[in-house]
Simulated assay, not measured.
Amino acid sequence: MKKYSIKDIAELSGVSVATVSRVINDNGRFSEETRKRVLRVIEETGYKMNYSAKSLRMNKSFSIGILVPDISNYFFSDVVQKIEEILFDKGYSTIICNTARNQEKETAYLHMLEGKGVDGLIVISGAEAFEFDYSQIEKQIPYICIDREPKEKSRTIFISSNHYQGAFEATEQLIHSGCKQPIIAVHNRKSTSTKERLNGFKDALKKNNIAFNENSNLLNVDIRSSLFEADLISFLARNPAADGIFSLNDSIALEILLVLRKNIRSVPKYIKLIGFDDMPAGRYSSPTLSTVKQDTSKIALTAVESLLNLISFPSDTGKSIIIPVSLTLRESTQGN
């Protein structure tokens, strides 16, 4: 099979080498007709760009590092998958690093990505107890943070769902559905998103003249613990007036739902339940789970556009972009 060069592609397309380069890099001016013609010739000839030569010529690796705390988490995996798809369409490869919320592992991955010469970093959430510390690496690599407060906001762009809005509206939904004593179920209180959701919950109670008390409105849970079921039933026994639960995420909400069903406490008749993240499993639970939906498509697109802009204009930092959320109401919050 003949090995085609970019010059061959230009001749077969009837355009200049510069135009072929602009089409390949999706950069510069060319008509839609020209784009389609060049791409058709590339497909017909099986032309493959010499990325090594291109990287050396442009001093770019066309690769992006993504630090994710838990790839098994639905929200994280959904965002990462969409980011990867967008970057691929733009000619970038991705190196996905699962840090397991471990600071030492994250630091090791940072040094590895630095060594590979990635053009940029996307840092998604992370260990609850520490902020992302960019000073751990020597090279000035553009980076953006998703759902993770950066240590130095002036050096990056922070992108997050509106966690406060989601919690506030979820709690108000419980109250409007008839709940007099809603509680919030949390698994930690250190992450940025948790703090915002707790604030939204408290403010919704305050707006509706319901006093917040840590003993009766705050349920600390660990769904991985063998004591989870006993702790939940014990909490509800101590707080018999509790009639609604806003869960920090859908995973916790679904585990709570299983325990309530096992202990013959009907949802939504006995207690109403709403989660956060809109996991697919919530559509198939019994009853189906009401939840707060994060706009992962917009988060992913905003992250990619922000990072690629930073790569071109490194000083365009110091921004915070908050993405609105929406309620998805199902059976678990229906009125009696």
Rank of each mutant, 00 (worst) to 15 (best):
R148E: 03
N102W: 06
L329I: 14
L219M: 11
P150R: 01
K262Y: 09
K139N: 10
F62K: 10
V17I: 13
Q334V: 07
D133N: 14
P280S: 11
N263W: 12
N27K: 15
I66D: 01
Q81H: 13
R265T: 07
T192Q: 14
L218S: 06
P142L: 02
S93G: 10
N215L: 09
T194L: 07
P142M: 02
L327S: 02
N98W: 02
K48I: 15
I233M: 15
G117A: 06
I299G: 00
Q334Y: 12
I223L: 10
L254C: 02
L310H: 02
N59K: 15
I71Y: 11
S177Y: 04
N208M: 08
Y109T: 01
F235E: 08
K153T: 04
S312K: 15
K139S: 10
Q334F: 11
S332D: 07
R101N: 12
F228R: 05
E229A: 12
R57C: 05
K3Y: 09
S193M: 11
L87Q: 03
K269T: 09
I95C: 08
I299K: 04
K36Q: 15
I144D: 01
P142V: 00
Q334N: 14
V221A: 05
I124C: 07
I144C: 03
I210Q: 09
V23N: 04
T107F: 12
E104Q: 14
H163L: 03
R265C: 08
D277W: 04
Y47S: 07
Y4S: 04
F75K: 00
N209W: 10
E255A: 13
L307A: 03
A18C: 05
L327K: 03
R35D: 09
S193N: 14
P69K: 07
G91A: 10
N336E: 15
R238D: 14
N263D: 10
V325E: 07
T291M: 06
N25D: 11
K153E: 11
R40K: 15
A230M: 12
E104F: 08
Q136T: 13
E138S: 12
R197A: 01
S154M: 08
I64A: 05
I252H: 02
S63Q: 12
L227R: 13
I311T: 09
L310P: 00
G275M: 07
L289D: 01
D78C: 09
R197K: 14
G65F: 04
F276G: 00
I184V: 14
S234C: 10
T19H: 07
S312M: 10
I42M: 09
R22Y: 13
A230H: 13
N98D: 12
F75A: 04
I24L: 15
S315Y: 11
K7S: 11
T156I: 00
R37Y: 04
Q181V: 08
F235H: 06
L273W: 04
V259A: 09
I223V: 15
G275V: 03
S16T: 14
F276R: 01
I210W: 10
F30E: 06
L273T: 01
I64M: 08
P150E: 03
D250A: 05
E32I: 05
L67T: 00
T194C: 11
L307I: 02
V292H: 02
D147H: 10
K36D: 14
